[in-house]
Simulated scan of single mutants.
Amino acid sequence: YRMIRFLFMQRGVWAVLLLPYLLTVSSPLDCREEQGSLSRCPSISQEKLLDRVIQHAELIYRVSEESCSLFEQMFIPFPLQLQRNQVGYACITKALPIPSSKGEIQQISDKWLLHSVLMLVQSWIEPLVYLQTSLDRYDAAPDMLLNKTKWVSEKLISLEQGVVVLIKKMLDEGMLTATHSEQGLFQYDVQPEMLESVMRDYTLLSCFKKDAHKMETFLKLLKCRQTDLYNCA
């Protein structure tokens, strides 16, 4: 515990050094011109909705990347980074039927691209709530990191709403209900030791960054298929 507290204090300076980079977060998007939620999307065209959903996913990925970088620089010394890689912490979405190879992604239908995005989004809603609670217990966690985690959590719910409406528009399906609370992919445990807690949070941030990139990639591939079906490799 003392080692972790020392690392917190030693690496707190990174919050200042990374400040200009971490403040480059755009405003939340909406189907209208003013700011708001993607839940107000049924009235706009399918093409415009897809563009807005992609923009939303891009922002979420960018902020998740910034948050992961800040957390790593402040709390994870290089030996612990190696330990995480060696132990091979599994991501919570590993069990989901999400295509992983380039060949699989190219072969799946538009329907499964959308449903893959929706599964990823819904699977991360609860873990990000846990992550906010966990980070609140850190002695040296900067407000910037806490605020970014909260922002991503809120925008993920908005992205879920937009993807649900997009599925309805593109696939002529009924409105889908959120199922993240019933999937059982993430379990809340008794508060772990400090080092274990830090590594768990680091794993969550790293895995979410990867999955956020998948969401963005799948949506951009879907957009490409709408405009240039034979040139989306």
Rank of each mutant, 00 (worst) to 15 (best):
residue 203 T to R: 14
residue 225 R to L: 11
residue 144 M to T: 15
residue 147 N to Q: 14
residue 171 L to D: 03
residue 120 L to F: 01
residue 41 C to L: 05
residue 158 S to H: 02
residue 99 P to E: 01
residue 63 V to N: 01
residue 33 E to V: 12
residue 13 V to W: 14
residue 100 S to N: 10
residue 131 L to G: 06
residue 210 K to T: 06
residue 206 S to R: 14
residue 124 W to K: 04
residue 73 Q to E: 13
residue 212 A to L: 01
residue 204 L to Q: 10
residue 170 M to A: 05
residue 15 A to C: 08
residue 77 P to W: 08
residue 93 T to N: 03
residue 170 M to L: 15
residue 86 Q to M: 13
residue 167 I to R: 09
residue 126 E to T: 11
residue 168 K to P: 02
residue 46 Q to T: 14
residue 154 E to Y: 09
residue 136 D to E: 11
residue 151 W to M: 13
residue 233 A to P: 00
residue 77 P to N: 08
residue 182 E to M: 11
residue 218 F to Q: 01
residue 200 R to W: 09
residue 66 E to Y: 14
residue 145 L to W: 06
residue 173 E to S: 03
residue 28 P to W: 02
residue 114 L to I: 05
residue 151 W to Q: 11
residue 154 E to T: 14
residue 193 E to L: 13
residue 5 R to F: 06
residue 27 S to P: 07
residue 223 K to H: 15
residue 141 A to P: 03
residue 194 M to A: 12
residue 59 L to C: 03
residue 112 W to F: 08
residue 151 W to Y: 15
residue 105 I to A: 02
residue 177 T to R: 13
residue 162 G to S: 02
residue 55 Q to M: 09
residue 80 L to Y: 14
residue 131 L to I: 12
residue 225 R to T: 09
residue 166 L to G: 01
residue 8 F to R: 11
residue 181 S to Y: 10
residue 224 C to P: 13
residue 177 T to P: 04
residue 104 E to G: 03
residue 153 S to K: 12
residue 70 L to V: 08
residue 56 H to R: 02
residue 64 S to E: 06
residue 64 S to T: 07
residue 99 P to I: 00
residue 119 M to L: 15
residue 9 M to T: 13
residue 117 V to Y: 00
residue 218 F to G: 00
residue 221 L to S: 07
residue 158 S to M: 03
residue 16 V to K: 14
residue 70 L to Y: 09
residue 232 C to G: 04
residue 36 G to Q: 08
residue 165 V to T: 14
residue 6 F to I: 10
residue 9 M to Y: 07
residue 64 S to F: 03
residue 113 L to G: 02
residue 67 S to V: 07
residue 122 Q to I: 00
residue 229 L to Q: 12
residue 208 F to K: 02
residue 112 W to N: 03
residue 22 L to Y: 09
residue 188 Y to C: 03
residue 100 S to F: 05
residue 69 S to R: 15
residue 196 E to I: 08
residue 107 Q to T: 13
residue 44 I to H: 01
residue 176 L to R: 08
residue 119 M to W: 10
residue 36 G to C: 07
residue 231 N to G: 08
residue 94 K to Y: 10
residue 174 G to Q: 06
residue 82 L to V: 15
residue 187 Q to V: 14
residue 196 E to P: 00
residue 224 C to Y: 10
residue 224 C to T: 10
residue 90 A to E: 13
residue 190 V to A: 09
residue 202 Y to C: 08
residue 169 K to F: 04
residue 23 L to P: 00
residue 26 S to F: 06
residue 6 F to M: 13
residue 22 L to M: 15
residue 92 I to E: 02
residue 108 I to L: 07
residue 181 S to Q: 13
residue 15 A to M: 05
residue 77 P to M: 07
residue 196 E to Q: 14
residue 194 M to Y: 08
residue 157 I to E: 14
residue 198 V to D: 04
residue 54 I to R: 02
